[in-house]
């Protein structure tokens, strides 16, 4: 191994190509760093902060930090996992995540990452925001209660589908996903079930209608094996489609 082009992740040597981020290189080497807003098909974003790793005493997001030779990167340490747990807990209390009532349960990346870092409880005070469900589209439904603002759909629609169906509006805690259509409804937008944007949502916010329970609970993506072995929701959706 050429040490000039590698860094160490929790002591393990990870080779990288120039231009790769820590996340790119780690994933390519089969090393898992938990993440939600990252999807290798899309430009790095760095918003969810779940992929924070420690480099030189500072926390940086692995999905945006460029790989550099000789870096010592800590990821799977108790304090970093605790930080990730707190970030996930913030995401859980910010929205309305009622797993037992969600069609996506068991195949949800938010759940799976939370399992991976050992999150047992939401810890913080719930916001219980009042949010809508948009069932206006014939094939898809959007439940805004579950949106975690990862912008994967925004980016996929813009960068892969060339459609700009989604955008983020508002600011601060009032930030929210909005839809490009005269009425703001999905059914009046250019969205189609074949869009890449329809297949990148890591949670149960953008869901196909019908067939939500075609895979029984207990046999779902993350029911038996952790996300570090199974991979992302979008990657598995991709496999299922191809």
């Amino acid at each position: 191994m050429n040490l000039a082009n590698s860094f160490r992740l929790d002591g393990r040597e990870i080779p990288f190509q120039p231009g790769q981020t820590l996340m790119d290189a780690a994933l390519a080497a089969g090393a898992y760093i938990p993440h939600l807003c990252h999807n290798p098909e899309l430009a790095p974003h760095g918003s969810c902060r779940v992929c924070v790793v420690r480099v030189g005493g500072r926390l940086v997001s692995a999905c945006t930090a460029p790989a550099a030779a000789g870096l010592e990167v800590a990821s799977d340490t108790p304090d970093i996992q605790a930080s990730r747990r707190a970030i996930l807990q913030m995401l859980f209390v910010e929205g309305n995540h009622i797993c037992p009532a969600c069609e996506k349960t068991g195949a949800c990346q938010l759940q799976a990452v939370a399992y991976y870092v050992g999150m047992l409880e939401p810890h913080f005070t719930h916001f219980f925001p009042r949010r809508d469900v948009d069932a206006s589209h014939p094939d898809y439904v959007i439940d805004f209660n579950r949106c975690i603002l990862c912008e994967l759909c925004v980016r996929a629609s813009r960068d892969l589908d060339g459609k700009h169906v989604f955008a983020i509006s508002g600011r601060g805690i009032d930030s929210r996903l909005v839809i490009e259509s005269p009425t703001g409804k999905l059914g009046d937008s250019a969205f189609a079930a074949t869009d890449r944007a329809a297949h990148v949502c890591p949670v149960g916010a953008i869901l196909p209608k019908r067939g939500a329970y075609s895979v029984p609970i207990g046999q779902r993506l993350y029911d038996r094996e952790p996300i570090s072995q199974v991979g992302d929701v979008a990657a598995n959706e991709g496999r299922a489609r191809s």
């Binding site: 859980f92 309305n96 009622i98 939401p122 719930h126 219980f128 209660n145």
Partner: peptide, 10 residues
């Protein structure tokens, strides 16, 4: 986390 009954919070 409140669970199913908390769905009335909507």
């Amino acid at each position: 986390n409140g669970g199913i009954p908390a769905m009335r919070n909507a």
